[in-house]
Design a protein around this nucleic acid. Structure first.
Lengths: 147, 147
DNA sequence: TTGTATCCTACTAATCCGATAGGATAATAT
DNA sequence: ATATTATCCTATCGGATTAGTAGGATACAA
């Protein structure tokens, strides 16, 4: 079980956008630089965030990206779905026939895990992540100041 | 994020073994039949369960496989690790340097999800799964009886 | 009109994964 | 003893997915 890189990069990107939405917005190439992601690759990631209506690029090309909506209402699950369509750990989740045998304890166990993950993703909002990120940055500043 | 088939099949297999350990044990080919898994493929799965010391094949080839240990002490996480070495959703989990940038909120978020999954896997024992499986089978019998 | 940033589509190289194949080994039945 | 059967072990293959690149179109601004 591994998270794909688009989801990883995508979350980092939208956190950066969320942290600068109140000001001028962020240029894609600046995200690429600070997040250390190839700008070409970021093309696709930004595109998926846009088509999921999570970010907008208002007012001409130099204005940068902004968040589309309240960060307290955008959950990590929403962001996750922008890159994964949905979370489905196993294929036979919705039916009660699993792999041509009867429904089994294994199936319901994996479904339980699936639900567990989804509710974790739903419990964290983009607002939470921004809060945490700025706390981290503040700590970094302190460390740098005192050394 | 997807679960690989070896883990899926492996869990089903070890549940079947656990349910028959007190009697004669289970032959691999019988597991293959009831679980609808290619016997050749099951070769590899059984091998991994064995090298993780979760099952044994005592007393000659016709005696079948048995559980090696108390099902209340074998957790789903142990079984999971037999097929996945460990759970690591992202690569940069142990270091506080993530993808050449500073430590970030995204990283700690994914680490949190990782912990969450692990503790879910640890919370379920093989005994629990066996209990659930026999309940399911009893229900199936009831349904069949009354129809 | 030149430069720069985003947008859009196609492609490639690499990796992983599910499954198969073939044969060695060992125990058992006849 | 010999044939049979089940497990054991290694190699391989085809397919799918994925991370990342490439190239150019569009749109806007200096």
């Amino acid at each position: 079980m591994k998270l794909n890189t688009k989801t990883r990069y995508g979350l980092r990107a939208i956190i950066e956008i969320a942290m600068n939405s109140s000001e001028h917005g962020v240029l894609q190439k600046d995200i690429a630089k600070t997040q250390n992601i190839s700008n070409k690759y970021l093309d696709q990631i930004i595109a998926e965030l846009k088509s999921a209506d999570l970010i907008v690029n208002t007012g001409g090309k130099k204005s940068g990206y902004r968040l589309n909506g309240d960060p307290k209402k955008i959950t990590a699950y929403t962001i996750f779905k922008a890159f994964n369509s949905s979370l489905q750990l196993i294929d036979c989740m919705s039916s009660n026939e699993c792999c041509k045998t009867k429904m089994c304890a294994a199936q319901s166990f994996w479904c339980g895990l699936n639900d567990h993950i989804v509710s974790y993703l739903q419990s964290k909002t983009l607002y939470d992540l921004v809060q945490e990120q700025s706390k981290i940055q503040k700590n970094n500043d302190l460390v740098m100041f005192y050394i």
